[in-house]
Simulated scan of single mutants.
Amino acid sequence: MGRLEGKVILINGAGSGIGAACALEYARQGAKVVVGSQSRSSEQVAAQICGEGLEAKPFSAEISDEDQVRAMVAFTLESYGRIDVLHNNAAMTGPEIITRDVDVINMDGDLWDRTMAVNVKGPMFCAKHVIPHMIAQGGGSIITTGSTKALQGDIAQTAYGASKVAVHNLTYNIAAQYGKFGIRANVLMVGLIISGATEDNMPPPVREVMLRHMLTPFIGTPEDCAKAAVFLASDESRYTNGQNLHVDGGYASHAPSLADFRDMIAAMQAGAGPGA
Results as ranks from 00 to 15, higher is better:
V209Q: 10
A156R: 12
G139C: 04
S253H: 10
G220N: 08
E208Y: 11
D67N: 08
A117K: 07
G140V: 02
D65I: 00
I11Q: 05
Y239R: 14
E5S: 15
S253T: 12
N12S: 13
H168D: 08
R212F: 10
F261D: 08
N89L: 03
P217F: 05
D84T: 01
T115K: 07
V102R: 14
K149D: 15
A229F: 06
S253I: 07
Y26V: 14
L54T: 00
H213V: 06
H213P: 15
G122M: 02
I193F: 01
W112K: 02
G36W: 01
A150W: 10
I131C: 02
S163K: 07
I143A: 06
M124D: 08
A226V: 13
A267T: 12
I11K: 13
A27C: 05
K180E: 07
G249Q: 03
P274W: 07
Y239D: 14
I97R: 14
E199Q: 15
K32A: 13
E43N: 02
Y251H: 11
E78F: 04
A162M: 03
G249S: 04
Y251Q: 12
T148G: 14
V187F: 03
N89E: 04
N241E: 09
N201M: 09
T216Y: 10
L211G: 02
G109N: 08
D101P: 09
P205D: 03
H213G: 11
M1F: 15
A272W: 06
R40P: 02
L192G: 11
Q29K: 15
L86C: 04
G53R: 01
I219L: 13
Y178A: 00
A272K: 09
Q48F: 00
E78M: 07
M92S: 13
G271N: 03
Y251W: 12
